[in-house]
C-alpha cells in the first residue's frame, strides 16, 4: 500500500533525530534567559564591586562620583518598605479574608475579583500617575515619603490579595467545620484557625510584594522622589530618595564614573532583595515546621 506514506514519515530514525534536535532547541530556550541573567549579574558585580566601600554605604549623594554614597537612599527604601507593610498588608489580607470567608458568589464578589485581577496587570507607571494626581496634589501630601508609600501600597495590594487568597483557599474545609462544630463564630474561626494555618503562604506573598515595592522606580519618579538629597527623611511628609532612584539618576548621568556607581548601587539593591527573599523562605520553612510539630 503505497498511499499510507503520505500521512506520515515512516522513517522512525529520522523522526527520532528530529525530536532530539527539537528537545535541544527547547532546552536552549530555557537556558538563554538564565544566561542573560548570569551575564547581567557578572557585569554588574565586575563594574560595581570596586566602588563598594564603607564611605559609599554611609555617604550622601554628591556632585562627584568619588564622594557619593547612598545612605539616604537605603534609609528611604527601608522606610518605604515599612509604609507599604503597614498599609498594604492589613488591607490585602483583609480583602482576601472577605473574599474567601465571607463573600457569597454574587455580582459584587465577582466584580471585586475581576477588578483585582485587572489591577495586577495595570502598568506601574499608571499607579505613579494615580499617586501624582491623588496623593501628591489632591490630598496635598507633596513629594513625600507618605505619597510614595501609599502609591506603592496600592501597587502591591493585588499581589498580596491574590497570594493570600490562594493560601486561604488551600485550607481544607474540615478545619473550619471542626471549629464551627465547637461553637466558634466566623471571626473566631478566622482568627484561631484560618489565619495561623494560612500564615506561611500569606507571608511569602507579603515579602515577595515588599521586594517588588522596593525595586519599583517609575511610580517614585512620578510622585517626585528626590534624585539626590543630603539628609535622611525624618517624618512621613519629608522628601526622600530611594535606591532605584539613585540607580536611575546615576545611569543617566554623563561619564563612566557615575555609571559604575550605578552598578555599585545595583549590587546594594540586589543584596537587599536577596536578603528579603531569603527571609521569606526561612520564615516559611520555620512556620511550616512549627505547624507540623
Amino acid at each position: 500500500m503505497p498511499s499510507t506514506d503520505t500521512l506520515f514519515n515512516q522513517r522512525i530514525d529520522s523522526r527520532r533525530r528530529r525530536g532530539k534536535v527539537m528537545a535541544g532547541v527547547l532546552f536552549v530556550c530555557t537556558i538563554l534567559g538564565l544566561v542573560v541573567l548570569a551575564t547581567l549579574i557578572v557585569d554588574v558585580v565586575l563594574t560595581g564591586a570596586p566602588w563598594l566601600s564603607r564611605e559609599f554605604i554611609t555617604g550622601f549623594p554628591r556632585s562627584t562620583a568619588e564622594a557619593s554614597g547612598i545612605w539616604p537612599a537605603i534609609i528611604g527604601s527601608l522606610y518605604l518598605m515599612l509604609v507599604v507593610a503597614a498599609v498594604a498588608v492589613p488591607l490585602g489580607v483583609g480583602a482576601a479574608l472577605y473574599l474567601e470567608e465571607y463573600a457569597r458568589d454574587n455580582w459584587l464578589a465577582r466584580l471585586i475579583q475581576i477588578n483585582i485581577n485587572n489591577l495586577a496587570g495595570v502598568p506601574s507607571v499608571v499607579y505613579g500617575i494615580l499617586g501624582l494626581g491623588v496623593f501628591v496634589y489632591l490630598f496635598g501630601f507633596g513629594n513625600s515619603l507618605l505619597a510614595a508609600g501609599l502609591t506603592l501600597s496600592l501597587l502591591v495590594l493585588p499581589i498580596i490579595v491574590i497570594s493570600s487568597q490562594e493560601a486561604i483557599r488551600s485550607i481544607p474545609q474540615g478545619v473550619r467545620e471542626s471549629a464551627y462544630a465547637l461553637g466558634a463564630t466566623r471571626s473566631q474561626v478566622i482568627w484561631s484557625h484560618v489565619l495561623p494555618i494560612a500564615m506561611p503562604g500569606i507571608l511569602t506573598g507579603v515579602i515577595l510584594s515588599l521586594s517588588r515595592a522596593v525595586g519599583e522606580t517609575a511610580p517614585l519618579v512620578l510622585v517626585g522622589a528626590a534624585l539626590a538629597i543630603n539628609f535622611t527623611p525624618a517624618h512621613l511628609l519629608d522628601e526622600f530618595t530611594a535606591i532605584p532612584m539613585l540607580i536611575f539618576q546615576w545611569t543617566e548621568e554623563p561619564g563612566v564614573a557615575f555609571r559604575e556607581l550605578a552598578a555599585a548601587a545595583i549590587i546594594v539593591l540586589l543584596a537587599f532583595l536577596i536578603l528579603t527573599n531569603l527571609t521569606a523562605i526561612l520564615l516559611r520553612n520555620y512556620l511550616e515546621q512549627e505547624r507540623s510539630a
Binding site: E101, I116, L130, S187
Partner: peptide, 27 residues
C-alpha cells in the same frame, strides 16, 4: 463584634474597587 469584623474586611475588599475608580477618575 461579628458585624464589625465583616464590615471591616468588606471595606478592605471594596478599597480595591476604589483604586480602580481613583485611577480612572484622575485619568
Amino acid at each position: 463584634r461579628e458585624r464589625i469584623v465583616q464590615v471591616l474586611l468588606g471595606a478592605c475588599a471594596l478599597l480595591t474597587i476604589g483604586t480602580t475608580l481613583g485611577i480612572v477618575g484622575i485619568l
